[in-house]
Amino acid sequence: MLELREVTKNYGGLRSLDSVNLHAEAEMITGLIGPNGAGKTTMINCISGLDHPTSGEIIFDGHSIERTPAHRITGYGLARTYQNIRLFNQMSVLENLIVAQHSDGRATLVEALFFLPSHLREYRQQRERAFELLERFHLMNVKDAPAGSLPYGDQRRLEMARALATNPKMILLDEPTAGMNPIETHELGEHILQMKEDGLTILVIEHDMSLISQVCDEVYVLNFGVIIANDTVENIKQNEEVIVAYLGRED
């Protein structure tokens, strides 16, 4: 579904990603772990089109996307969340979910101006879809509140709901459990597994090994911009090089 081939990203003299190869299989959950500053967020930005790699190829669902603008990548069916939550804070929860369905919409300003039925129909459909997501992520009772006023856990879930509202085939989760307690983390894991059941491909970046163990089929380990391991969760936990990267070597 998603493949990175020899992806390199330089910031001035700093090499943030160094010939990264990664393959996320369709309808599987792939994990990406690594210490702080390993280049995980750079990688997600390159995949989602907010940044572009210096060299290398990124192929998503048959499209070569390493130079494609972000909005087109979303149109191909790739959605993401952010490490530090980035909701449209002044919009209501419901509006956040409606604006995310932009790619699926067709209505132009002219149709809105003259109250054409096509515009009304589209808006009704988008509202319905938004309500489904509100129901599923337990956000119905806060639907009219400004997104910025929500408690932290609700904001996290809204971000995931908003990513789903873009109607994706694949979703990138950038540290979805940051700042959550173990119970909330487990609950979020259930949501992620449910998305897999629904046929989504998922790439999840995490620090929390409990979530990785709970959901991932395969794990990649990134350290200083280089993939140092790629295996199942059990094997990764035993991997000498990974332990060294995380804990340091004992002299």
């Binding site: 907010l50 603008p69 979303t74 149109g75 980035r86 604006v99 932009h102 873009t166």
Partner: peptide, 15 residues
């Protein structure tokens, strides 16, 4: 409105 609030996220929403 989405663009005004966060143009990067707006792009990721397909705008």
């Amino acid at each position: 409105v989405a663009i005004r609030q966060d143009n990067k996220v707006a792009a990721n929403m397909g705008i």
